[in-house]
Every structure is written in structure tokens, then in C-alpha cells.
């Protein structure tokens, strides 16, 4: 393989991973921007998406059913969590962090009890390779990138072109005023939390065939998603997307020169530096 081809392949891998991280981080960012809840269980919602997909494929033998149904199921679970657990304590940020930590324990251990501790794999639903600069690239990864982009476009349409999106942005801007204008902010909160959970689960289903599934797979994703949200600027959805893709591509390209772990270390250190010199994030406004 020529060095250029290697560069492109690793860069593409990074881009695909960055887009998956973007889905997860956008879910986190949506929830944080609206309710200021740091959701420790968000990584586990990603894990639940992947594990539910595995079960659904076992039952139906069909990846596409899982791709549609798993995010929906986790989205509903997210709405239940918001309504049942978080709403009574939404004014106490630290307490909500703890509640989500409790949920995280419950999810991980329930999966450990039913799914088992051994890592599992899902077959890539689309085989085949695309010829690319003298080498080949898996079609499924291109599909993942496309799927993530469609989901992101859908999110943008939802937020900026629908009535519900307008309500969401209104509640985000000024809850009391929104309520005074007749917006049912409780429903908006519940739907937003569900949407955030569904996005994380969608990331989980898409990532499932290119990674291995186990009950703690959310633990590594969570800090990355946090970092991306902060770097992008709290509450800035575009910033979150840019930071996720940047992190993914940087890490992918660094893989050409160093081991994956070292690449990870460098990208995290880069993020730490950004955090220190520009704490409001790349796109955030100064607080």
C-alpha cells in the first residue's frame, strides 16, 4: 500500500468513527443544552443500542429491522428515564449526575446478567469493497458515514424546520418565556431526552459491526463524547459535530505514524490544550 493510500484509508476510518461519535455527542449536547444534565448513562445508551441490535438480529436475522427498532426502543427508554427519574430532581445538577450513574450501573449489570461478559460480534450487513486509490475500502463503512450524515441532516431539519424544533430551541433559550407563550416544556424535555437517547443508540447500532460488543463498551465512549461536547462549545450543535469529526480524523491520521493508544493520547491532549486556552470551545461564545 502506498503511503498516500494509507493516509486516505486511516483518515476515512477516522472520519467514520468521528461521525459515530458525533451522533452520540449530539445526543449528549441536546440534553445538556436543554436540561443541563450531565448524563453519565449516555455511554450505556450507546451500548444498549448495540446490544439490542444484536438480540434483534438473533431473533429476526435482519440488520435493517435492528437499525430501525433499537434506536426507537432506547428512545422510548430515554423518555421513561426523563419522566420517571430525572424530572423530580431536575433542579439539582449534582443529584442528577448521581441518578444517571445509578442508571448506568443498572444498565451495565442487566446486560452482564443477560448478554454475558464475553464480547460478541455482528456481521457487516453489507459486504463488498470499493476500489480506492489502488486499494479497497469496505462498503459498510461508507454506508455508516452516509447513514450518520442522513441522521444529522434529519436532526437539523427537525430543529430548524419543524414546530417541535422551534419549541425545543425556545425552551432552550428561555424556559419561563416559552412556558408563558404556551409551550408544554415538560413534553419538550421528555422528547428531547428520548431523542438524545435514540441518537446514542443509533450510533451504537451503526458501530456494532465494526467493533466488539460488551457491557462496558459505553465506558470508553462517554469521556470522548464529553470532551467533544465541551470542545465544540457547550450548547453549540455545529461545534459538537465539527469537534467530533476533527477528533476522529486527527486520531485516524495519527494511526499512520503511531500505535492507536498513542494516537488516542495525542488527540486527548490536543483537546485538553483547546480546553485550557479556549474554555468556551471552538464555536462557543464567551460565558
Amino acid at each position: 500500500m502506498t503511503p498516500e493510500a494509507q493516509f486516505i484509508l486511516f483518515g476515512l476510518n477516522g472520519l467514520v468513527w468521528g461521525l459515530i461519535i458525533a451522533l452520540i455527542a449530539l445526543g449528549l449536547s441536546l440534553v445538556f443544552g436543554l436540561i443541563e444534565i450531565i448524563n453519565i448513562a449516555h455511554g450505556d445508551l450507546f451500548m444498549l443500542g448495540a446490544v439490542l441490535a444484536w438480540y434483534m438480529i438473533q431473533w429476526t436475522g435482519n440488520f435493517w429491522v435492528a437499525l430501525a427498532a433499537a434506536p426507537l426502543a432506547v428512545g422510548l427508554l430515554g423518555m421513561l428515564i426523563e419522566r420517571g427519574v430525572l424530572r423530580p430532581i431536575e433542579h439539582k445538577p449534582i443529584i442528577t449526575i448521581l441518578a444517571t450513574f445509578g442508571l448506568s450501573l443498572i444498565f451495565q449489570q442487566s446486560v452482564l446478567a443477560t448478554f454475558g461478559g464475553a464480547p460478541q460480534r455482528i456481521e457487516e450487513p453489507i459486504g463488498g469493497l470499493i476500489p480506492l486509490v489502488g486499494t479497497f475500502y469496505p462498503v459498510y463503512r461508507v454506508f455508516v458515514a452516509g447513514c450518520a450524515l442522513v441522521a444529522l441532516a434529519g436532526l437539523w431539519l427537525l430543529l430548524y424546520k419543524t414546530r417541535y424544533g422551534m419549541w425545543m430551541r425556545a425552551v432552550r433559550q428561555d424556559r419561563e418565556m416559552a412556558v408563558a407563550l404556551g409551550i408544554a416544556s415538560d413534553q419538550v424535555y421528555m422528547l428531547t431526552f428520548g431523542l438524545g437517547a435514540a441518537l446514542a443508540a443509533l450510533g451504537g447500532v451503526l458501530a456494532a459491526p465494526v467493533t466488539s460488543l460488551e457491557f462496558q463498551m459505553g465506558l470508553d465512549v462517554l469521556p470522548t463524547a464529553f470532551i467533544v461536547v465541551i470542545i465544540g462549545g457547550l450548547g453549540s450543535l455545529q461545534g459538537t459535530l465539527v469537534a467530533a469529526v476533527l477528533l476522529g480524523v486527527l486520531e485516524g491520521l495519527a494511526n499512520v505514524f503511531v500505535t492507536p493508544t498513542t494516537a488516542r493520547i495525542f488527540s486527548l491532549l490536543f483537546m485538553a490544550v483547546v480546553l485550557l486556552v479556549r474554555p468556551q470551545g471552538i464555536f462557543g461564545k464567551r460565558p
Partner: peptide, 20 residues
């Protein structure tokens, strides 16, 4: 209980909801 960390998670939830 075979999966006692679940119980810890539940205990944590009970605490934050009723004795924050």
C-alpha cells in the same frame, strides 16, 4: 443476589430520589 451491583444502582436511585 448474583448481580448485586444492580441492587447498588437501585439503592443509589432510591437515595437520590428520596434522600438527596
Amino acid at each position: 443476589v448474583p448481580n448485586f451491583p444492580i441492587a447498588i444502582g437501585v439503592l443509589l436511585l432510591v437515595f437520590v430520589l428520596f434522600a438527596p
